[in-house]
Design a protein around this nucleic acid. Structure first.
Lengths: 243, 243
DNA sequence: CGTAAATTTGATGGTTTTCAAGCCATGTGG
DNA sequence: CCACATGGCTTGAAAACCATCAAATTTACG
């Protein structure tokens, strides 16, 4: 249970239920980042509440009324669907600064589940407020559409027909970027091999084998969920080249 | 060269270079559809120009400044990228009412190519105008985000690990819906087998084989690009069930 | 400390790709 | 009008890649 998220100062502040954007640990990545102080204050007023989620707890379920979007402050939240056969399909991993629930815009219900993979903290923003503040600030509107179009590009990338090697390599590099551990420090993945495999549309065993092979080739150092990328450039080539 | 698109009245009106939303054939599907008359007029003023595209002509290329988004009035426009190895990757087919270029929001350049598959007609809307009008109308903002999130869901669907049968079945049903031919009439696909295969991340041969099998099973009637769906319900089952 | 879950490794099989070749439609030029 | 060329479409055989099944090993946690 010794998740690193537990050590985050933000996590320890469990008593405060009203959000406070000033001094938030996720500021650099947040939608509101680097905005005018008045915008931040306005935004701050809209954030309905913060929510602490224990590892494995659901943020919302498919079919629930899509009343809010959520901005991740700390931890990691997995979104996924469950198809008719009961199979899980991982749609994404949301790290601090990411917004969850934008896909449900224009729908009355969420069409996916959201579950915390590690102890997490999110800010709930009522959808109506979201529309309002964004309509009032061209800057924020721009950023919002930017995010949506970025997600769209990411999804289209995921939709490509890449080999298992390419998928895993890309995933490791993307995670390295988003988790941005201290240089030289290995990153700690918040998700299981099973979740990675499901997200990449591969079998769990395939992900294992690829990681083993990458390690044998000296590209990475794997130690359970701690992964150190030794040769980013070569890994990048594995990600793009068809070999 | 006898594309059906040529018969569309809108297509014949090649002299008019300033858009006129009133009476546009794509109205029912357009973003502006069913808006207040003042909104339509405002929108109409923003539409910089219409553009006629001969079959095979490029609307824009990857790397070009992303100055506008485009609303398709008639025809079909394919968007795709070309990777380092020179391989094409089809991202989508845009039919009347669809908006092209939203993915480039927040980027200075398009990151994909857009080419007309049949004689087509598009309305260009400068990006600044787009932002402005959308900011001025909560209704339009809502619709825009709705579209983006719809595209996102579609991309996530495409990203699933479906069998060749499932992919082709889904594609046929989706095209039937979007092309909405007269009941009983077969639809005419605007794109080649190669484009379909590329879009579905399959080999051209695989698409052929699946179509042949579907025809043998009596699910569809295939005659070159004219395809008649004989058993929509069964095809739907092929699309969802893993069998 | 013991059980359950996660991870890893091996062997086998199935789906799809690749390579190769033939067919069909369309359009061109004689 | 027909021969011919071109590109799209279709079919067949072999190989590649990954999933599945099975089992050993490790880790997590009550």
């Amino acid at each position: 249970m010794a998740y690193e998220g537990m050590m985050n100062p933000v996590m320890q502040d469990q008593a405060r239920c009203v959000a406070n954007c000033m001094g938030c640990g996720a500021q650099p990545q947040c939608l509101i980042a680097r905005s005018r102080i008045t915008d931040v204050q306005h935004w701050n007023g809209l954030v309905q509440s913060q929510q602490n989620l224990a590892s494995g707890k659901a943020l919302f379920e498919a079919g629930a009324p899509a009343s809010s979007v959520y901005s991740v402050r700390a931890g990691c939240v997995k979104t996924f669907t469950i198809d008719a056969d009961g199979h899980e399909r991982v749609l994404g991993f949301h790290l601090p600064g990411d917004i969850i629930g934008l896909e449900a815009f224009g729908q009355s219900q969420y069409n996916m589940h959201a579950v915390a993979l590690t102890p997490s903290q999110v800010c709930a923003i009522p959808r109506a407020s979201m529309t309002e503040v964004v309509a009032g600030s061209a800057e924020l509107l721009h950023r919002l559409v930017e995010r949506l179009s970025h997600s769209l590009r990411a999804a289209l990338t995921l939709a490509g027909d890449y080999t298992a090697d390419q998928r895993v390599a890309s995933f490791l590099l993307e995670m390295q970027r988003r988790l941005s551990p201290l240089p030289g420090k290995p990153m700690r993945l918040p998700m299981s091999r099973r979740d990675i495999a499901n997200y990449l549309r591969l079998a769990t065993e395939t992900v294992c084998r690829v990681l083993t092979r990458f390690e044998q080739q000296g590209l990475v150092k794997v130690e359970e969920r701690r992964i150190d990328i030794l040769a980013p450039a070569e890994l990048q080539r594995s990600a793009s080249s068809g070999v």
